[in-house]
Amino acid sequence: MRLLTHNMLSSNIKGVVNGFPLRIEVEKVVEKTVEMNGEFLKKMFEKVDWKALIDASRAMGYTELPEEADSSMLDSDEFLNRFHHALLEIHLEEGALVCPETGRRFPVNKGIPNMLLHEDEV
């Protein structure tokens, strides 16, 4: 699971008011190289939650993203490379996503998060 996917998922358990961002528990991270697409990254920069992306990438052991970012940084190739790497190349292979309000764990196995809710959580 890429961090772009993490950036758009939220806990949907009944009664939870703010289920975003899901906390990440890491057991195994894998990296897969993909070609960089600058136009796509520029569009995504407007849409991602930056704080959630930094925290997620740190949890995954990647600490190269700047604390604050604004759109002027998109002119820098170095910044684009880091953003690209964090968003699309680091995958959570084994671990869990954890609801920030209830602490409920959604396990991630073979890169696939199991977001199925129990009957009493719907």
């Binding site: 699971m1 996917t5 950036n7 758009m8 998922l9 939220s10 806990s11 949907n12 289920g19 975003f20 961002p21 939650d49 696939i112 998060p113 199991n114 977001m115 199925l116 809710l117 719907v122």
Partner: peptide, 11 residues
Amino acid sequence: IRSNVLELGWR
């Protein structure tokens, strides 16, 4: 993602 499409939370 393993989920019921109707129950997944999005941001």
